[in-house]
Write a protein that binds this DNA or RNA. Structure first.
Lengths: 340, 340
DNA sequence: ACTGGCACTCCGAACGCTGGAGTGCCAGGG
DNA sequence: CCCTGGCACTCCAGCGTTCGGAGTGCCAGT
């Protein structure tokens, strides 16, 4: 049905349209790409491509623009992910290497991603429920007030304050600290939650009240965030890159960026860092974002993704470059996190 | 020069223009506000106001719109800050009360502020150099790798990783921890930096190398962030509220939001929470933001501001309500922070 | 199967027109 | 002296019209 040349034509249309953001006609197409055939022939091919639903014309007697299906075919079959130049790679590593802690890594990543792709970048914080307990710290602030600090394997730190029912004994705190750490260190948060339940019983009845309070707060910290994932967003200024129809195109995206729940759905399930998820136009779950595409991938260790990162942009984006950048950044971040 | 009625006219013009975003003429003005005089009289007043530079007309034979000077006069003399309704106050407290830690407080504040003012909200994190050391924690992650956690009086947590020159002894760590805390707890970060310098000398020569490494990193954490202040931004979707001239109005703001340095300058010096800073149009330090106003104030304790929060929006915003909301939020946040 | 030619379509920029909202000014009246 | 009604003037925004160019579809010829 679609021979080689028709696919070439489609590829050329996508590339031209992405570059110019204007409907592309048969004549300009043969001028710019040397297809070796006449405009008339291209017109026939275009008619076929339109028949199949890969391109469309905004109105009769205008050039063609790709449909979502057209972009989909382009991404799947007609293009190869573009690798970054050595200079770019180097810039990435050196920029990320300067990070001082997890927060900083995420902030830098989001900035970096926005800069290279020139799109809006989204980075999900490493999820708590896939990471491990690295350390739990109990600190006395006043005799009646304790600070709990939870440090996870990804370097994420959660803190909670606990009001004690009565003045607490330093000895007890030290004891509790070491018992918590020996009981939980290295466990996944989900497992740790289970182990935690047994802790209060190992203490004498007099202290149990306090210990329970602490354990409860800790449990909350473990599970609380599972639903409410954290997210960083950057490069909103790149929204300029959508066309001019502010109301229809930009506004919905701007609104979505405020709603982290929506962003999480957009990013989708964290995939293996090798695999890129591309959602084109109406393929994504929100009607209002029909002119928006998402390119995302997981990051973390090689085998298992800790979280997802990606970009959001107009459907008429440069997919090969964008995909290359997202993939590269995901890899380097994974590496940085593994090292620290 | 400007009698009472002329000021009434200016007030009416500002209010109408803010409500409609359209140049307001003499007739509509007397219709909507009962000024008790005829359109012709108002026209004369308008001519005077224009003469003085408080209003202007986009083109001959159009209505008038306020100039930046007009808004300035309005804010300074012609309006009173609007207090929130009890329901709104209650909503604020209950929304902020749910916060679990400092990060959460800031996130909630920014969201809240954006929601009530329907503008872009900006909240600066409590600055390190004005807060005190609450606790310092040293955690062994591997025998060669230590995690330092600094907790400040505002609840802010900074963490750093230190590679030890040789395997470290648990005993030494415990010793160091308690010495650091007794030496530094309660001090301002700036003072603490000085006290810190003396710490290594109190250790035997064998350990001094390690201790110095830790102290150096800690010092960096103390001072590092002084320049690089953290900031949270929210409500970018409200940028829709600017007029339609996307390129001129919205784009520069969107770009500024990415540059935290610029935002800090916009917010300006943290003021006493009682005092509101209002920068109207070209009063702010960036040429591109000439159609943008900033309403900001400090928050923290009553006597001294920890940091600044505020909003950014079009010059034609509803100043009385916005100022009321910013002030109220600042107060409640200060309260929440004082309690925790 | 590809190509050149031709008639047709349709948008968008340019132009001119017109109604309405607004102004400035002036002379008259409390 | 300040206010008012009246009047001529200005100028934009919206609307309809025109027109050229870019693009298409189709057909007959190679």
């Amino acid at each position: 049905m679609l021979d080689e040349r028709k696919l070439d034509v489609l590829r050329a249309i996508v590339e031209d349209y992405v570059a110019t953001h204007e409907p592309v006609g048969s004549k300009t197409l043969v001028d710019r790409h040397n297809l070796g055939v006449s405009p008339a022939t291209v017109r026939n091919d275009m008619a076929a491509l339109e028949e199949e639903g890969y391109i469309t014309q905004p109105h009769t007697s205008a050039g063609r623009i790709p449909t979502d299906a057209g972009y989909r075919l382009f991404v799947d079959k007609l293009s190869t992910v573009k690798t970054l130049s050595p200079a770019e790679k180097k810039a990435i590593t050196s920029f990320l290497a300067g990070a001082v802690d997890l927060d900083d890594v995420v902030r830098r990543t989001v900035r970096l991603l926005a800069q290279i792709t020139r799109q809006v970048a989204i980075v999900q914080y490493p999820s708590l429920n896939r990471s491990h307990v690295r350390h739990i710290e109990v600190v006395t602030m006043t005799p009646r007030r304790l600070l709990l600090v939870l440090i996870t394997s990804a370097g994420r730190v959660e803190q909670r304050i606990v009001e004690a029912p009565h003045d607490v004994d330093e000895q007890l705190i030290g004891d509790l600290r070491s018992r918590l750490n020996t009981a939980l260190a290295g466990q996944r948060l989900t497992e740790a939650a289970t182990s935690l339940a047994a802790v209060p019983e190992t203490f004498p009845p007099h202290d149990r009240h306090l210990v329970s309070a602490i354990v409860t707060t800790l449990l909350e910290a473990f599970t609380d965030e599972v639903g409410e994932q954290r997210i960083a967003v950057g490069g909103a200024a790149n929204l300029t890159r959508y066309g001019d129809d502010f109301e229809r195109n930009v506004k919905p995206v701007l609104e979505a960026l405020e709603e982290h729940v929506i962003l999480l759905k957009l990013l989708g399930e964290a995939t293996n860092p090798q695999t890129l998820t591309v959602r084109i136009g109406h393929e994504n779950p929100y009607e209002e974002l029909a002119t928006t595409s998402v390119v995302a991938t997981g990051y973390g260790s090689k085998s298992e993704a800790l979280a997802t990162l990606g970009i959001v942009g107009p459907t008429h984006m440069d997919y090969p470059s964008t995909m290359g950048a997202v993939r590269a950044v995901a890899r380097y971040v994974s590496q940085i996190l593994a090292d620290s």
